[in-house]
Simulated scan of single mutants.
Amino acid sequence: MVLLLSACTATAVTPTPTASSPFAGCSFTGGSGPAPDLPALTLPCFTGGAEVRTGDLRGPAVINLWSSSCDPCRDELPVMQALADATTGRLQVLGVDTFDSRDAAASFATDFGVTFPTLYDRDRKLLLGLGKTALPVTVFLDADGKRFVYTGTALDKPTLGTLVRTHTGVTVTG
């Protein structure tokens, strides 16, 4: 009888994601600059699940859309991590895990040492909102919120450095 009563008074527990997150939290939102030229979406931060509105993001920034099933992403993500490490405090580097399971994304990021803040977009809302269908996609935002979208092959370090300087005004050293 006691067991039966305790089962009736138990509180519901919200399920948490099964994968632990290798990514930093998303504490970069907000800012005083102009709103970015991005589709108006709200996506959860991979770490912690806080909702992030794309309209709250500010440049200069690099936003990399990737998936664990994307072969070019395997080459590009470590380059993005190196960019995040080299530009701390001068450039926001944000990942968007796209069309993926949380477990696959966390495992992939752990294997490749990726720790920069990442949003979770299982339904490809940002990818489709940018008018794209294939990964990887990298969005460069300048301080005025103007965007440049790069698609195609995986970015290598020299090409990424040039695109960052050209489209965000930030010079990458190292």
Rank of each mutant, 00 (worst) to 15 (best):
L3A: 15
L3E: 15
L5I: 13
S6F: 09
A7V: 14
C8E: 15
T9S: 15
T11D: 15
T11L: 14
T14G: 11
P15G: 13
T16V: 13
P17N: 14
P17Y: 13
P17V: 12
S20K: 14
S21C: 09
S21H: 10
S21E: 06
P22A: 11
P22H: 14
A24F: 07
G25P: 03
C26N: 09
F28W: 12
G30L: 01
G31W: 00
G33A: 08
A35S: 13
A35K: 08
D37A: 11
P39S: 11
P39M: 11
L41H: 11
P44W: 12
C45V: 05
F46E: 06
F46M: 11
G48R: 05
G48C: 10
G49D: 12
A50I: 00
R53D: 10
R53F: 02
G55M: 05
D56Y: 08
G59S: 07
I63L: 06
N64I: 03
N64K: 01
L65V: 03
S67N: 02
S69G: 13
S69C: 07
P72N: 02
C73W: 02
D75F: 08
D75L: 09
D75N: 07
L77H: 05
P78E: 02
V79R: 05
V79P: 09
M80A: 07
A82Y: 10
A84M: 10
D85L: 05
D85K: 13
A86L: 08
T87P: 02
T87I: 14
T88K: 15
R90P: 01
L91P: 02
L91H: 06
Q92W: 08
Q92A: 15
L94K: 03
L94E: 01
L94V: 14
G95P: 03
D97G: 04
T98Y: 01
F99N: 14
D100G: 08
S101C: 04
A105D: 08
A106V: 10
F112V: 14
T115S: 10
Y120R: 12
D121T: 12
R122V: 12
D123F: 09
K125N: 09
L126Y: 09
G131N: 06
G131V: 08
L135I: 06
P136R: 01
P136C: 04
V137N: 01
V139W: 10
D142W: 02
D142Q: 02
A143L: 01
A143M: 03
D144T: 03
R147L: 01
V149I: 14
V149E: 01
Y150E: 09
Y150K: 00
T151H: 06
T151V: 12
G152R: 03
T153W: 05
T153Q: 11
L155F: 04
D156E: 04
K157Y: 06
P158K: 00
T159W: 05
L160K: 00
R165A: 14
T166M: 08
H167A: 05
V172E: 04
